[in-house]
Design a protein around this nucleic acid. Structure first.
Lengths: 139, 139
DNA sequence: TGCTTGACTTAGACATTGTCCATTGTAGGA
DNA sequence: TCCTACAATGGACAATGTCTAAGTCAAGCA
């Protein structure tokens, strides 16, 4: 059963076939699909689902804080259902593979007050870049 | 005088009016323009410059390592001429203002081997998000 | 079960950002 | 000054995302 679906249902979300399919497609660990990939997978189960619905649904899940937008790739946004646990990302520069990772420290404390320019900081995103084992071997 | 321009010239870059204008527009601290903004500012000085040239020129400066692509914004890539000194970014979620910042620690050491999935990590990008003083006051 | 209603979905036009290519122009060396 | 390779142009195309008007349907209620 889909955790994500459960949480959305619990928030009084009106449930439709389209929303269910989008939530199911997006559920799991190390899942980081683009809107287009979500649409393709959703359409495999529900052929008449439209792109606009996928964008709307993803946007709503992001507003509800159940899904996170990730900009690891410089083309399309990716969607990460793992919003309940803070984590960062590790990206292979060759094949684009993405893993969720959990650094030990808190990067927030690394920014001295003198470097904050008076900003109120609420969030830190860290992206580690490199090569995955198979791409490193091929290189 | 433009530091960026100096460095590019020093690499035997063939100098044209268009490239000079792009380099001049991009020079400075805390500069993070989108390709489109670069084009607009360049066109103010050299009206017939084309979009393709701006994209090509930016792409070359990135390849040469003299300019960095930044994905703080989820729409367009931004270009940062401050490539000679490693730094991270602080972004206002309201007005989009971006500052270059220099955290004290090395975020690389925060990622334990068990969380590296065998990747060879070569780079870390950190983006601090929050509100700048004026947006925080308005909120 | 069968209405009613407002929220949801749809298709497609449109907007923005970025890439490509064939042609024309030009910087810099002989 | 002339040549030649490299650069610039502009317009078509591609990818991603947004918007709108009209149709459809989930959920509450009689």
């Amino acid at each position: 059963m889909s955790d994500l679906l459960e949480r959305l249902r619990g928030r009084g979300w009106r449930m439709t076939a389209q929303r269910r399919v989008v939530a199911e497609v997006l559920d799991g660990d190390h899942v980081h699909l683009t809107a287009d990939e979500v649409h393709a997978r959703a359409a495999a189960r529900l052929p008449e689902i439209s792109r606009a619905t996928v964008y709307n649904t993803l946007g709503e899940m992001v507003s509800l804080g159940e899904v996170i937008e990730v900009a690891t790739d410089k083309r399309a946004k990716r969607y990460d259902p793992n919003a309940h646990r803070p984590h960062q990302h590790l990206v292979c520069g060759q094949c684009g593979q993405i893993r969720d990772v959990h650094p030990s420290g808190n990067p927030l404390t690394d920014l001295p007050a003198s470097e904050r320019f008076g900003f109120t900081i609420s969030d830190v995103e860290v992206t580690y870049r490199g090569l995955c084992p198979s791409c490193a071997q091929a290189a």
